[in-house]
Amino acid sequence: MFGWLRRRRRQHAARPLPEALWQSTLARYPFLGRLSTPELARLRTLAGEFLGSKEFHGAQGFAITDEVAAAVAVQACLPVLYLGLDWYDDFVGIVIQPGEVVARRTVMDEQGVVHHYDEVLSGEAMDRGPVMLSWPDVADAGASADAGYNVVIHEFAHKIDMRDGLPDGCPPLPAGFLGAPSARAARSAWLAVMQREYEAFREKTIIAERFGGEPTWLDPYGAQSIDEFFAVACEAYFVNRERFAGEFAALLPLLDGFFKPNQP
């Protein structure tokens, strides 16, 4: 790292992003302009605190600049704007790749047969481990917002989902969430809606891919599992709320209630 980010680490003080860096980040990602003035001020401060608590590493010789780190920090802080950075306190490292990564996977099917396959990744979040991101996807998030795509928010949504264990499409919920009498009831109510919306989306994806039906607006990767559906939904919710509200009206109260608690 170099420049402002290096200097601020030596000072060990959390400071908001410098004006020039902040303005260039806002210009790169126009969807941030939907935030109110107080929200933008909070996001700027939160991003500075985020940078003071995380360590960035460039893979394959990729250089971590102030611009790279700020781009990740600002987008990663969107989901926790009202929740706080404690939701990200289970890890420190963020690895930035110069491009997509091919990961070798091994799975066992129901018959006990082991299968090996390659998966192309633009990002990955490890349970209580680092987050990996492809810089081209991070950098292009301004242009891809129309499609509801954002790799940073996707991976950090997984981090939020995993706070209570394995990713299952439901983050930890408090008693009283949307009127539920207990945390257990809140979870049941959340999953009832999320599962229904996931199954409907999966059906649309299958029809589109196998039978030439209309392509889904939301990334079809969300049809892989309910936890991926949650992460993909969070991407669209934060970068293109208007389209998301039209496509997934049933999910809007859930995400509003969780990500914006006590907000009108």
Rank of each mutant, 00 (worst) to 15 (best):
Q111I: 00
G112C: 08
G112A: 06
G112M: 06
V113E: 14
V114I: 14
V114E: 12
H115A: 02
H116A: 10
D118A: 08
E119F: 04
E119M: 10
E119P: 11
E119L: 12
L121Q: 11
L121A: 07
S122K: 00
S122F: 09
E124D: 15
M126S: 10
D127E: 12
G129R: 13
G129F: 07
V131P: 04
S134K: 00
W135G: 00
W135T: 01
D137V: 04
D137P: 00
A139I: 06
D140S: 03
D140E: 00
A141C: 02
A143F: 00
A143M: 00
A145F: 02
A147M: 07
G148T: 13
N150L: 11
N150V: 15
V151E: 05
E155H: 15
F156M: 15
H158G: 14
H158V: 14
K159V: 15
M162T: 03
D164Q: 13
G165L: 05
G165I: 00
L166K: 02
L166S: 08
L166V: 07
P167K: 05
P167W: 03
D168M: 02
G169N: 12
G169D: 10
G169V: 05
G169S: 12
G169C: 12
C170Y: 05
C170D: 05
P172V: 03
P172F: 00
P174Q: 10
P174L: 10
A175M: 00
A175C: 08
G176A: 09
